[in-house]
């Protein structure tokens, strides 16, 4: 089976001389839910731009469902749906027209386009807004409109470039449910996001890109299994002793009654509770300091930058 996406030796040098990609290799299997993560300016959007035909590559190979994005652009584009970071629809067009017009660009008849648009706008809770000019929608609605537009021709591969940026928590969760269902129905999804919790919740495989190079490409499970340590925050019932030490753990007192404990690979959290009890500290609550993937991401990117 051909990979949904294949990138080999892909590089991009912009007109101002900035090298955004330094010969990256990447392969995404069909049916995958894949995250492409990296700090701002790492090369994520450039990679997705090349795949979607909005950025001209300098060298290398880029394929969608086995079709070269330059030499076989018809096949590549027919199989691809793109949700960009920026709103890029005609703000004066009605919501339904934005979706129906895009369907026309992919060769769908007016009737097919209307049927598909109605289904998607209902799924994404935009049907009631179908006759409104798209500029009147809220930020979250505009994002959902771009998702509906990208899916109207039923692409096999969907690129989502920060689809939940600026979307409230409730809406984000409903979008996750929608994306999961879409993936389960067979659509390969490539996601970039700054919410690492989102990548951990949704994605099976992940590539971390930094300074135009792939730092790590593996499964989310394998990446998390490689965690060397994880930091937990403990809220105590009483004031934390300023000189609190626990043998075998790195402890930081960060507030009057709050401490952070770094738990290394192979260590048990139960032992932390026991050690704290022995010091007369009762725990009111405990939470991870940050998302696990976030911690790994910071380690990998910082390590690469040094």
């Amino acid at each position: 089976m051909v990979p949904a996406l294949k990138v080999q030796g892909l590089s991009k040098v912009y007109d101002n001389g900035f090298q955004a990609l330094k010969g990256i290799d990447l392969s995404v299997e069909q049916g995958d839910f894949f995250a492409l993560l990296g700090p701002n300016g790492a090369g994520k959007s450039t990679t997705l731009g090349i795949l979607s035909g909005l950025v001209q590559k300098t060298a290398g190979l880029a394929e969608v469902m086995g079709f070269d994005v330059n030499k076989q652009s018809f096949g590549a584009r027919l199989n691809l749906g793109v949700v960009p970071q920026e709103f890029n629809f005609n703000q004066f067009e009605k919501v339904e027209d934005v979706v129906v017009t895009q369907a026309g660009y992919f060769g769908l008849s007016r009737r097919e386009a209307r049927t598909s648009a109605e289904y998607l706008l209902k799924e994404l809770d935009l049907w009631d807004k179908r006759d409104e000019p798209s500029r009147m929608l809220s930020g979250g609605m505009k994002r959902r409109l771009m998702i509906a537009r990208a899916l109207v021709h039923k692409p096999k591969v969907l690129i989502l470039d920060e689809p939940t940026a600026g979307v409230d928590i409730e809406l984000r969760r409903s979008m996750w449910t929608f994306m999961k269902a879409l993936n389960e129905a067979g659509t390969t999804i490539i996601l970039t996001t700054h919410y690492l919790e989102e990548a951990e919740q949704l994605c099976r495989n992940i590539a971390i890109i930094n300074r135009g190079e792939i730092v790590r490409c593996t499964s989310v499970r394998a990446l998390l299994a490689n965690m060397k340590s994880e930091t937990f925050v403990f809220d105590l019932m009483s004031q934390a002793p300023a000189d609190l030490q626990l043998a075998g753990w790195v402890v930081r007192v960060v507030g009057e009654d709050t401490i952070e404990v770094v738990v290394k690979e192979g260590q048990s959290i139960n032992s932390v509770f026991e050690a704290l009890s022995a010091k007369g500290c009762l725990v009111r609550s405990m939470r991870p300091k940050s998302n696990r993937l976030e911690e790994l991401f910071v380690d990998l990117v910082q390590g690469d930058n040094q």
Partner: peptide, 16 residues
């Protein structure tokens, strides 16, 4: 206007 609003990208990503 299509360029200004970036809606020209709708055509650029399509097999047109």
């Amino acid at each position: 206007s299509n360029k200004f609003q970036q809606s020209i990208e709708e055509l650029m990503v399509a097999p047109v």
